[in-house]
Design a protein around this nucleic acid. Structure first.
Lengths: 337, 337
DNA sequence: TCCTGGCACTCCAAGGTCTTTAGTGCTAAT
DNA sequence: ATTAGCACTAAAGACCTTGGAGTGCCAGGA
């Protein structure tokens, strides 16, 4: 049904359309690609490709444009991830190298990815749920308040103020802190609830309310609150593109963090590049965009995702190469920290 | 030179142009505003206003459009800040009320402001330099590393990993922590350098390298590093506007945090509303935008700024009202925390 | 059987002309 | 000082024409 040459034609259509942003005709194809056949033959192939839904005509007597299905086939079978140039790799290394803390690593990563791809980049903070507790700190503030700071092994810091405690003497706080750290330091966040379950029983009855309050805030902030932070960059790159949907819809979708998190999260194959094309994205406003995402992490452990959002008409090999490379470097940097 | 009526004409021109986004002519003005004179008279006034540079014609035989200078006069003398409706005030209160920590207060504030004004909102995190130290925590990590966490009285938390220390026994860290807190807890950040100057002399000679390393990181992260965090929301609202400069330029400017910080920082009169119109903004990409900003803080102390970026053709009274109201509420919320 | 050159056909995009329309500036009268 | 009237202007829209890129199909050739 689809012989070698028809696939070559589809590949050529995608490549040319990505370059020029104009429907590509049979003559132009024959000129620019060494297909070895005449425009008339290409036309016949195009009819077949169109019947199968891989390309479409904006109107009679215009050239052809790839459909979502066409891009999908291109990504799956007709292209390979394009490795970065040596210069680009060096740029990544030097740019990410100077970061001093997690915030800065993330901030630099997202800007770097936006710059490399000339599209919108998304970076998710290392997930809380997959990391483990490095240390818990309790700091008595003035009044009857305590600040709790939890540090994870990925360098993330969560803080929360606990209010409305009656008595909270220094020594009680000290005891609690020591007890907490004994119980959960090094533990996976998922295991924290079990680990602290019987702690209240171990404190003196009069201090139990304080302990309970602290624990409930701890659990709430670490486990129940699934909110995962993400950062964007490169939205200005959208202005250059003209979308089928309005630019406004796209920008709106990008501001809804929950949508983005869900999109990134729906990667098919963990630890691999995932590409979602056009209507494959469930969100209305992103119908005319594609998303290339990847996991990053330390060793085999995936911590979170990074990704790029651009028009369906994007340079898939290049974008995929950039995303994969940046994901790897971030993993290395995090491992080194 | 500019009598009452000419000012009334200017006010009417601004208001109509903001509403319709089309050059406004003398007939339309006479119809929609009770100026009590004929179009011909209005035309005469317009000539005077144009000679003085308050309005301009896109081309001969078009209506008039306010210039930056015209908007400036409008803001300074012809309009008053429009207070929010009761419903809006209630919305603010309930929306900001549910925030649990500083991050969430800021995130909610910026989204709220974007929604109220239908423009791009900017919120700056409470400045480090103006707050004081609540507590310093040192946490020994694995290896030879220490994590330092500084908590300020505004609820902000700065963390940093200190690496490459030779010896760092538990007791040394404990001593250092106690000493540090004695020296700087409660102190203004600006006073920290003086306060810690002679600390190294107080520790045992063999521990001095550790102390010096910790102090240098502390100073670096608190004082030298002036980077102030800001958050944006509502960029999608820009899509509806058509700018003289390209949308891309505006989006690019908005991604440069340092530019925004500088813009917010250049408020003329602290603790008051500041409006910068069009070319008054030094940044190229923001030549066709205006910025309304205000300080927020606790009591008389200004902690940081919030602001709104929109087209010069914006509803100044309404925007100013929203910015002022939100600034006040954020101050209250922070005070309550 | 597959490929190719040729040809008639289609549709869009660009350019040109004309008309309409909103608005102006000026002048003379009130 | 204000106004009515009028001639004038420039942009915006409607309409037409033209050119070109591209297609589909057919008949002939390898």
């Amino acid at each position: 049904m689809l012989d070698e040459r028809k696939l070559a034609v589809l590949r050529a259509v995608v490549e040319d359309f990505v370059n020029t942003n104009e429907p590509v005709g049979s003559r132009a194809l024959a000129d620019r690609h060494p297909l070895g056949v005449s425009p008339a033959t290409i036309r016949n192939d195009m009819v077949a490709l169109e019947e199968d839904g891989y390309i479409a005509q904006p109107h009679t007597s215009a050239g052809r444009v790839p459909t979502d299905k066409g891009y999908r086939l291109f990504v799956d079978r007709l292209s390979s991830v394009k490795p970065l140039s040596a210069a680009e790799r060096r740029a990544i290394e030097s740019f990410l190298g100077g970061a001093v803390d997690l915030d800065e690593i993330v901030a630099r990563t997202v800007r770097l990815l936006a710059q490399l791809t000339r599209q919108v980049a998304i970076v998710q903070y290392p997930s809380l749920t997959r990391s483990s507790v490095q240390h818990v700190e309790l700091v008595p503030l003035g009044g009857q308040r305590i600040m709790m700071v939890v540090i994870t092994n990925t360098g993330r810091v969560e803080q929360r103020v606990i209010d409305g405690l009656g008595s909270a003497s220094e020594s009680v706080v000290d005891d609690l802190r020591a007890m907490l750290n004994r119980a959960i330091a090094g533990k996976h966040l998922g295991d924290v609830p079990d680990a602290v379950e019987d702690l209240p029983a171990q404190v003196a009855p009069e201090d139990r309310p304080v302990a309970v309050a602290v624990l409930s805030v701890l659990l709430e902030s670490l486990v129940e609150r699934r909110e995962e932070k993400i950062v964007l960059a490169g939205t200005a790159n959208l202005a250059a593109v003209d979308f089928a949907a309005s630019l406004r819809d796209v920008l709106e979708a990008l501001e809804e963090n929950m949508v983005l998190i869900r999109l990134l999260g729906e990667a098919k194959d963990p630890s691999m590049l995932t590409v979602r094309i056009g209507a494959e994205n469930f969100h209305e406003g992103l119908r005319s965009t594609s998303i290339v995402s990847a996991d990053y992490g330390v060793g085999n452990q995936s911590l979170a995702k990074i990704g790029v959002v651009g028009p369906t008409r994007m340079d898939y090999p290049g974008t995929m190469g950039a995303v994969r490379a940046v994901a790897r470097y971030v993993g290395q940097i995090l491992a080194g920290q």
